[in-house]
Design a protein around this nucleic acid. Structure first.
Lengths: 190, 190
DNA sequence: GTCTATACAACGATAGAC
DNA sequence: GTCTATCGTTGTATAGAC
């Protein structure tokens, strides 16, 4: 792996573990096994490196989500697979956590991938729900946009609860809870 | 207001706006209108000051939640009032955001109030749901613990979505969404 | 109780040799 | 492309006068 690649991957890990403000160029260099000068040769500074890292993570998250949500099955099955796929729950969401970082939010360039990722997930979930509704699998009265927002919110909030508790249990409970609520809107005719 | 009080209040604001890592003693002093020596006279350092600030915020959050959840009305009405009460949505949850701060999570003393606050909210919501179920207002099949976790998660996740979007709209949608899902489990006999 | 002075490490970046 | 040296600033805290 090239030095440039190692720098980006190290930044991705550190942004996930510690966030932007708490990640220093020095820490990135050490994890990448690169020197000071090497990092500043490949990147203009911390913001440019962070943008490369965040863009890549956003891209991967979207690809992973698309994999679960475009798979065959009923809407509820696909959403269940999306919510229950293997996750590093206690590490939190690598994109969601960035919303708490003041310097990320203050920089439109760094914030854009975060904003786009959540807009995409909400839209994609709403599409899946709309398909289920159109097939008669879900109640005709179900509002797909607000339901999609609630589903993504449970995911993001589940991470918060898990980290607060120091346990994955609240995350699993929240997922089970929202799937139980959603089941009440299935027609049984999927 | 005493200097000590001003220091605690300034710390509360800064922890909310920027988090622990990104909040410096200097910034706290400036906002409080206090000098360097004055701060270190009243507190041993940043961690002790943060503990005072976090404890107070946790206490207030709990009191506010209790106010909505103990009010008269059906379970759904009380939870609706809790979820829809006025909030500084774009600032995020002052307690929830701390779960993303590496130094808060690494310090058991600072983390304890965060953990306790969410444990309390989940338990209290489960009680309200159990009351509604006992009264025949909610379906007997409803799992109160997982539903409570889902409701809190929607709240916390709603903040994340709103900050990512730079708009309160996704927060409101997520709340509307989960209340819509919950309505499907009402018996209509409350 | 509050102030100024001081200390020392870390941060984020630049300079210039190799 | 990578290294070491250097820089100015900020973070966090202590010392000691008033």
């Amino acid at each position: 792996m090239s030095t440039s690649e190692r720098l980006i991957e190290s930044t991705r890990e550190l942004l996930w573990e510690r966030g932007y403000v708490a990640t220093s160029p020095k820490a990135i260099q050490q994890r990448a096994g690169a020197g000071q000068g090497s990092m500043y040769h490949h990147f203009t500074g911390k913001p440019e490196l962070a943008l490369a890292a965040i863009s890549r993570t956003a891209q991967e998250m979207r690809a992973a989500g698309e994999e679960q949500l475009s798979a065959p099955g009923t809407a509820i099955e696909r959403i269940t697979r999306y919510l229950r796929r293997e996750r590093d729950v206690l590490k939190g969401c690598p994109i969601g956590r960035l919303t708490q970082d003041p310097e990320i939010m203050a920089d439109p360039t760094l914030r854009a991938p975060v904003e786009e990722t959540f807009a995409w997930v909400r839209g994609r979930l709403a599409e899946v729900l709309a398909e289920g509704r159109a097939r008669g699998e879900l109640a005709a009265t179900l509002d797909v946009a607000t339901t999609a927002a609630a589903v993504v919110a449970v995911l993001q909030g589940g991470y918060v609860l898990a980290r607060a508790a120091g346990s994955t249990a609240p995350f699993d409970q929240a997922i089970t809870g929202v799937l139980g609520l959603l089941a009440g809107h299935a027609t049984g005719q999927g």
